[in-house]
């Protein structure tokens, strides 16, 4: 601000300097016997384009760019005040345009550009069976999964999961909690490179149709661990009840970000036990 005031002072000083020049020139001419009218006209003719001369002089101060910017801003504000309707329309249009583009980019960034927070995310694919119509997704039966795994030459490993449905209740220390869970194959976390922060996680074993070593084992998300058990570390290995089933927590992991960028509760992940 002091720079600006300094500039203003200097500008009016230049005005005064050139005005003094003009007065002295006129006074000299009058002293030589010209009428004041003649003297004024002749002096002005002789001095030429004064605003231009001042501009050029100010340019030598190196502040002109700043001054022009200020002029432009003042001009813009004046125009806006003169026609507020137009200004509102333009500002609204710009805001919508920029906002829409930014929103669009946020989605594209998360969905398409950002890497999934998993190991070798670029090599991760989802396999899915569909029916004859485009929206006819169905769960893949174990027979197909077993065949995929047996004849797989294209993938390092195939893991799978299925949702536990909306009505899943975990009995916590004080109350039952509705949770969002997935039944997963025991190799899923290893394949995604996700590690438990506490506990051993699932025991390594090949997915099978029967109840394996991990049957009845769950992995809690950090959020559910705190919500249901108050962050109690002794929960490891203890039996908890989900709906009516008894499971033993074997680990806790921080919920990874899903491909949509929101926190998922892989929480109470129960290894699949096919029956």
């Amino acid at each position: 601000m002091s720079l600006w005031r300094g500039f203003g002072a200097r500008k009016s000083e230049l005005d005064e300097e050139i005005e003094a020049h003009r007065r002295m020139a006129i006074a000299d001419r009058v002293a030589r016997g010209e009428s004041s009218e003649e003297a004024r006209a002749a002096t002005e003719r002789e001095m030429g384009n004064m605003p231009l001369a001042k501009d050029v002089t100010r340019e030598s101060w190196g502040w002109v760019r700043l001054e022009r910017l200020a002029q432009d801003v003042r001009y813009a504000l004046r125009q806006m005040r003169r026609s507020p309707g137009f200004a509102t329309t333009v500002i609204g249009t710009l805001a919508l345009g920029i906002g829409a583009a930014a929103a669009m980019f946020t989605v594209v960034d998360h969905v398409l550009l950002r890497q999934l927070p998993y190991k070798d995310a670029s090599r991760l694919v989802i396999l899915q069976e569909t029916g004859p119509t485009a929206n006819d997704y169905s769960n893949t039966p174990w027979i197909d999964l077993a065949q995929w795994r047996a004849e797989n030459r294209s993938f390092e490993d195939i893991a799978f999961s299925t949702g536990m449905g909306g009505r899943t209740y975990l009995e916590g220390n004080t109350a039952a909690l509705q949770v969002d869970g997935q039944e997963v194959s025991p190799n899923l976390f290893a394949m995604l490179g996700a590690k438990t922060q506490l506990g051993r996680g699932f025991v390594a074993e090949q997915p099978s149709f029967g109840a394996g070593k991990n049957a009845g084992t769950i992995v809690l998300s950090n959020a559910v661990w705190h919500a249901a058990f108050g962050g109690d570390k002794s929960i490891l290995g203890r039996a908890v009840r989900i709906n009516t089933r008894q499971s033993i927590p074997s680990g806790r992991r921080s919920g990874p970000r899903s491909s949509w960028g929101r926190r998922t509760t892989v929480a109470d992940t129960i290894p699949i036990t096919m029956k």
């Binding site: 050139i18 020049h21 002789e46 001095m47 384009n49 001369a53 001042k54 050029v56 030598s60 101060w61």
Partner: peptide, 17 residues
Amino acid sequence: LQVETGSLYPALHRMER
């Protein structure tokens, strides 16, 4: 020789700097 006012003052301010 007539020095143009439009040249004189820019020159003066430049030489001052």
